[in-house]
Nucleic acid binder design. Structure first.
Length: 376
RNA sequence: GUGGGUGUCGUCAAGCGGUUAAGACCCUGGGUUGUGGCUCCAGUAUACGAGAGUUCGAAUCUCUCCACCCACC
């Protein structure tokens, strides 16, 4: 079967498991490792698509959309009528859609999980809905994303072994149903998601079952849900080992600068995270010298840019004092400028990571980065 | 000048004889990882206009003074 999305692995670092590769999609190539900005509701919050294309040197080449949100509003049928999500939101590069599985987890109270799927109440109006693997694929087909994610159950942390085992096995059965429900593989690819919580044996079981499905990419789910970072790193180590080298590996929901480096070092190719845009809206900037909480009083008369080493639009034109003023006044421009900066920071950090891998100096670059950024 | 009203944290504002004197805003700090939320959490302030009295006990009652507001001369 010919896949919409294929992966070329260019190189693996000699000293770490870091990889340098490229994802080919119907909407362009994506150099990896990559950070994917999240645009849940068909928009990267506070950003115009044309500005998302200017992040870093080349701009973001792929963003996320969300099945759950777009299904509830404006409705996947409407998006389909509009010509698909790309056209609807004026984004001609690649899109990956999350399946709705995570929302089922994060909007916990309002749901009931069965073999068939998940019954849940809309966070908007409380109306009752049912998601099944087939429904998730139907919605993602209508949205027309390049990469669709399997409908999974993300177990909470902590969760006991038995729960996680049943959950991962259900996720595998759902994955088989997702695969069966999808037809146009040349237009859209489906990535499988492994679960298994923090249990090594369950991660193994999940990986075996998911990889057996022979999909164009695999992701590691169920991490960054509240577990300590050391545990997350350990689980990542285990997971990456279990995934085939020739397929892209996607670590879902992870995106703080430290986790990005740790993930790349362990062989992760793709990341996504709401963190940069959420932090931006809440007044925190990510800079080469660590986090800058722009609302802090010490920036009231600081007329320097957020990050003296940053060449983003925000840093080229605005001072910390001005950004603080905008934030305190709750001006929209505050979210716009900080979001653009934070995304630029992560996207360009990833560009530098890719370059360092190409030049065999990823470990040195990592050390250099943290020497400035500070410890965690 | 006469009559009336009001004075409680930086601001607004509860309380009207026994409270650790609410709360909100502001301010200060923190959180945020497959995005419901211009959000959530926490913290600081000896604030009862001044003085004298009544009372076991006063922000609460009385008197004097001060300040401000509104009417009328």
């Amino acid at each position: 079967m010919k896949h919409a999305v294929t992966f070329d692995l260019y190189k693996t670092d000699d000293r770490t498991r870091a990889r340098r590769g490229c994802l080919h999609t119907p909407h362009g190539d994506i150099q990896t490792p990559v950070f994917m900005p999240v645009g849940t509701q068909g928009t990267v919050k506070a950003m115009k698509p044309e500005d998302v294309k200017t992040l870093g040197k080349e701009g973001a080449h792929i963003i996320l959309g969300n099945t759950y949100h777009l299904y509830l509003r404006p409705g996947h049928e409407l998006v389909k009528k509009a010509g698909g999500l790309h056209k609807f939101m004026n984004w001609d590069r690649a899109i990956l859609t999350d399946s709705g599985g995570f929302q089922v987890f994060s909007l916990g109270k309002l749901r009931k999980i069965t073999e068939e799927g998940v019954r849940f109440s809309s966070y908007i109006d409380g109306s009752k809905h049912m998601f099944t693997p087939e429904k998730s694929i139907e919605i993602q087909n209508a949205l027309g994303s390049d990469i669709m994610m399997a409908f999974d159950e993300c177990a909470p942390y902590p969760a006991d072994w038995r729960y996680v085992k049943d959950s991962l096995e259900l996720t595998t059965r759902w994955l088989a149903r997702c695969k069966a429900a999808h037809h146009d593989w040349e237009r859209q690819s489906l990535f499988g998601i492994m679960q298994g919580g923090t249990y090594k044996d369950l991660r193994y079981e999940s990986a075996m079952q998911v990889v057996e499905m022979d999909l164009p990419g695999y992701s590691i789910g169920g991490l960054s849900v509240g577990e300590p970072k050391e545990i997350m790193y350990d689980v990542m180590d285990d997971c990456v080992e279990l995934l085939p080298k020739e397929k892209p590996r996607y670590l879902m929901g992870v995106g703080s600068p430290d986790c990005l480096f740790e993930g790349v070092e362990r062989g992760i190719d793709m990341f996504d995270c709401v963190l940069p845009t959420r932090l931006a809206r809440h007044g925190t900037a990510l800079t080469s010298h660590g986090e800058v909480k722009i609302k802090n009083a010490k920036y009231a008369e600081d007329f320097e840019p957020l990050d003296s080493e940053c060449d983003c639009y925000t840093c080229r034109h605005y001072s910390r004092a001005y950004l603080r003023h905008l934030f305190r006044e709750n001006e929209m421009l505050s979210a716009m400028l900080l979001s653009e900066h934070n995304l630029h920071f992560l996207v360009s950090t990833m560009e530098k990571i890719r370059k360092s891998i190409e030049e065999d100096r990823f470990p040195e670059y990592k050390r250099e980065f943290f020497a400035k950024y500070g410890e965690f």
